[in-house]
Amino acid sequence: MSPTFTTGLQDRSVIVTGAGSGIGRAAALLFASEGARVLAADIDAAGAKGVTQEIKEQGGDATAVIGDLSDPLVIADVVTTAEREFGRIDVLVNNAGIMDRMSAAGETEDAEWERVLRINLTAPFLLTRAVLPHMLGAGRGVIVNTASEASLRGSAAGAAYTASKHGMAGLTKSVAVMYRDRGIRCNAIAPGGTATGIRLDLAPDASGPKVLRSYAHNIGRSSQASEQASAIVFLASDAASNISGVILPVDNGWAAV
């Protein structure tokens, strides 16, 4: 008989950051549909509570933590809440992120650099560090990060965002190789253009939009958040049990151009 495809996510405990909208929301709903218990973390209270309520209405188990993940106290709250509500932490999805102002390096102010790096790279590091003792104690665990097409090349998104997403790719590979003999897998998706509600606050005369126009024809169609979520759930599932350290482009072939 042919083996049966299974995600193995039934009753797993999953933390999804940035779960109030976009890719995070789609991932939270998809994990719940596979029988996972979901902690939805987001700075947007309405979004986080909305997705948890939707999961509960569909018969699932979910809880929300509201707060800015750049705050170590919020990181601690996410982990302690998941442990208290679900008894363990099986999967961490570091999805929360912000855009920069599409500023080139010479245009980037300290505040922009520090805020983007804090949310996009330092917060995922802190949350990864916080969940690892729980996963190592169980002898297994999966971390899936949301990197970006900007983690694979130079990007018109801006210096801060591009650096943060390259850092996310490096963090992913480091965790994968350091913990591969201890039951931990770590991968990332690299979305191309995706229809989400991510906030854009372009700097006046930012270089990014001008550069982007020069290669926009290579990007291809935008994906839906559900397509990115499917890749996240696959990488978190038992179907990907021998996949670790991968930065998976989900970009309609843009990375191949």
Rank of each mutant, 00 (worst) to 15 (best):
A26F: 06
I243Q: 02
V79H: 08
G208M: 12
P249N: 14
L152N: 02
V144L: 13
A48V: 02
P204L: 12
R221F: 11
C186T: 10
I119P: 00
A159Y: 02
L171G: 05
N252R: 14
G167E: 12
T122F: 10
I184D: 08
A169K: 06
W113I: 01
R199S: 10
T194I: 15
F31K: 07
S151P: 00
A216C: 06
Y215M: 07
R182F: 09
W254L: 14
T6M: 11
T194L: 09
L9G: 09
F125H: 13
G50S: 09
G253M: 14
W113C: 05
G137D: 12
A123D: 03
M1N: 14
L121C: 05
T6S: 14
A159T: 03
G183F: 09
G141N: 10
G208H: 01
T52H: 03
V116F: 02
E83H: 12
I23R: 04
G8E: 14
I198K: 09
A130P: 00
Q228Y: 08
E85N: 05
I98M: 13
A159M: 10
A28H: 03
A138S: 13
Q224I: 00
V79Y: 06
A159K: 02
M1H: 14
N187I: 05
G208I: 03
E57I: 03
A138L: 10
A45H: 03
I55D: 04
V79K: 07
G18Q: 07
G139P: 01
P249D: 11
A130N: 03
A157M: 12
Y161S: 08
G158S: 04
V51Q: 02
G67K: 06
A150F: 05
Q58I: 00
N145M: 03
G183C: 10
R180Y: 10
E83I: 11
L73I: 00
A123R: 07
D201G: 05
G208W: 01
A157Q: 11
P209S: 14
P209A: 15
I243V: 15
G208E: 13
I232G: 04
L30G: 01
V233S: 11
L202E: 07
N242E: 13
D71S: 11
A169P: 00
T162E: 13
E57Y: 01
S13Q: 11
T196E: 07
G87P: 01
T108C: 11
D61Q: 15
S244W: 02
V233R: 01
I247C: 12
M168C: 03
G97K: 04
A195F: 06
G137P: 00
I23S: 08
S103W: 00
G197K: 13
P204K: 15
D251Q: 11
A104C: 08
T80C: 10
E83A: 15
T52F: 04
A26E: 06
V211S: 05
G141F: 13
N94K: 04
G24A: 10
T4C: 11
R25L: 12
A27W: 01
T4I: 15
D61R: 15
G154L: 08
V14E: 05
